[in-house]
Design a protein around this nucleic acid. Structure first.
Lengths: 238, 238
DNA sequence: GTCTATATACGGATAGAC
DNA sequence: GTCTATCCGTATATAGAC
C-alpha cells in the first residue's frame, strides 16, 4: 500500500482529530458549538505543535500560543484549563488514534511476516501523517506530570510488546531466525522512531516514507530471515 | 575490547571532564583554585544532568540547581554567567571529548569492517560512560540558542558522514553490499542512539552494553554483508 | 464567544555581608 | 569563596467588558 492510499483509507486529517477531541472533552471545553470548537482546536493544536517542536513545550508561553493561533489568551482558556490539560489532550488523542489504527491493520493479517510488515508500514505511515504529534510525544514525555509519564511508558511498552509477540510467533512457526525477541523488537522500534525524530533530515534528502519503509523492511528481513548466523544473539553470557 | 577495558584506557571520569572544562573556561570562571573548581563543577554538572534529564533543562530553576548541587545561588553564578553559558559548557565538553576519542579509535583501524566495528563499539561505550551527557544533548538541542543548535546539527552530520564514508569505502573494496550508503549510515546511528535514549529500559532488563554492541554489529552485518538481496535498496524510483 | 487589562506568583540574576 | 536577601522582569490565569 502506498502512503497516499493509506491516507485516504484512514481518517487522520486534522479535522478528524479535532472532532474526536471535542467529543471526548465536552465537559471541560466551555464552548459548545462544534463548528467553532473544531475550527479553533485546529488552530490551537497546530500552534502548540509548531512552537513546542521548535523550542520546547515548557518554553512556549501562553502569549506565544495566543499569537501563533490567532486567539486571545482569554479565548484559549475557554478550551483548556491550563498547559497541563492542553498537553494531556494532545497526548491522549495521539495514543487513542494510533492504538486503534495499528490494532486494526495488524490484526487483519494472519501470518507473522504479514503482521510484521503491516506493523512496520502502519507505524511509519501513521507517524508520517501525524509527525508533529509523534515528535512531540517523544520529546516532551519526560517533562509531564507523573500520571502522563506513566501512560507514556505503558503505551511504549505495549507497542514494543506487539513486535515481540509477532517475532516470537514467527520463531515458533520456524519462519524467523532464533534471535532474542525482545531485543530485536527494540531495534525495530528504534528504526521506526528515527523516521519521525529526524523527519526534516529525510525530507531534505528527498527520501519518501515509502522508500524508508522498504529499506527498513529489508534491514529487518536480512536479520530475521537469516537463520544460521543470528542465533548467536541469545543473551546467555559467553 | 570490553567496556571495563575501554573505561580504563579512555579518560572520561567525571573528574577528568571537569578538569578539562576548567582549563577551557579559566577566563569566565571567577574561582581560581583548581581543586575547588573541579570539586564544584562535578557537583554542578551532576545536578544539572540529573534534574534536566528528569524534567527538562528549561524547567530546571536555579533554585532547583542550588538545592541539588548543595551550592547557593550566589556561588553558582561564580562558575557561569547564566543558564545559557552553563548549557554551552556542557555541550562543548561533550562534543570535544567524543570527537577526540572517536577519531582516535577509528583511525587506528585500517580495513572498512575494522573501522565500522570500532566506530560502533566506541560510540556505544562512550555513550555508556557519558550516558546522561548524550541524553541531554539529544533532548535539549532544539531548545538552545541559534548558535548552539547549529553546532549540534553540524556535529550530528559529521558523525553520520563518518559512517557513510566507511560504508562507501567498504563498497568500493567489494566487502559491503551495494546498499544506499547514507541511508544505511542513518539506520546504524538510529540503533546507536537507542542505547542512550532508552538506557533505563536496557538496564532494567539486564542488557549490558557489550551485549547490545554485539547485537548491533550482527544486525548491521546481516544487512551489509549480505550482497545479493540488499542491492534493491538503491533509491532509484521503481 | 472573544477580547483587554490586571492580580499574583515565580524565576533569573545581583549586591553586599561574612 | 560562599551565603542571604532582594530587585525586577515575565508568565500564568482570571475578571469583567463587549
Amino acid at each position: 500500500m502506498t502512503y497516499a492510499e493509506f491516507s485516504k483509507l484512514i481518517q487522520v486529517s486534522k479535522k478528524d482529530i479535532c472532532r474526536e477531541t471535542f467529543a471526548e472533552n465536552r465537559k471541560t471545553i466551555r464552548i459548545k458549538k462544534e463548528k467553532t470548537v473544531v475550527k479553533n482546536l485546529e488552530k490551537i493544536f497546530g500552534a502548540v505543535l509548531k512552537i513546542s517542536n521548535q523550542k520546547g513545550f515548557q518554553a512556549m508561553t501562553m502569549r506565544d500560543l495566543s499569537q501563533e493561533s490567532g486567539l486571545s489568551m482569554g479565548a484559549l482558556y475557554a478550551y483548556f484549563s491550563g498547559k497541563d490539560e492542553l498537553v494531556e489532550m494532545l497526548q491522549h488523542q495521539r495514543r487513542s488514534i494510533s492504538g486503534r489504527i495499528i490494532n486494526e491493520t495488524v490484526n487483519a493479517q494472519k501470518t507473522p511476516w504479514g503482521k510484521l510488515k503491516a506493523a512496520i508500514y502502519t507505524h511509519l505511515y501513521l507517524s508520517e501523517a501525524m509527525q508533529p504529534w509523534f515528535y512531540f510525544s517523544f520529546m516532551e514525555a519526560k517533562n509531564l506530570n507523573k500520571e502522563e509519564r506513566k501512560k507514556a511508558v505503558l503505551s511504549e511498552q505495549n507497542s514494543e510488546k506487539m513486535f515481540t509477540e509477532i517475532i516470537k510467533e514467527g520463531q515458533a512457526e520456524g519462519v524467523f531466525s532464533d534471535c532474542h525477541g525482545e531485543l530485536a523488537a527494540g531495534q525495530i522500534k528504534a528504526l521506526l522512531q528515527d523516521w519521525y525524530l529526524k523527519h526534516s533530515k529525510y525530507t531534505k534528502r528527498n527520501v519518501t516514507v515509502e522508500q524508508y519503509a522498504k529499506l527498513t523492511l529489508e534491514f529487518v528481513e536480512a536479520f530475521l530471515m537469516n537463520g544460521a548466523k543470528a542465533s548467536s544473539t541469545s543473551l546467555t553470557p559467553s
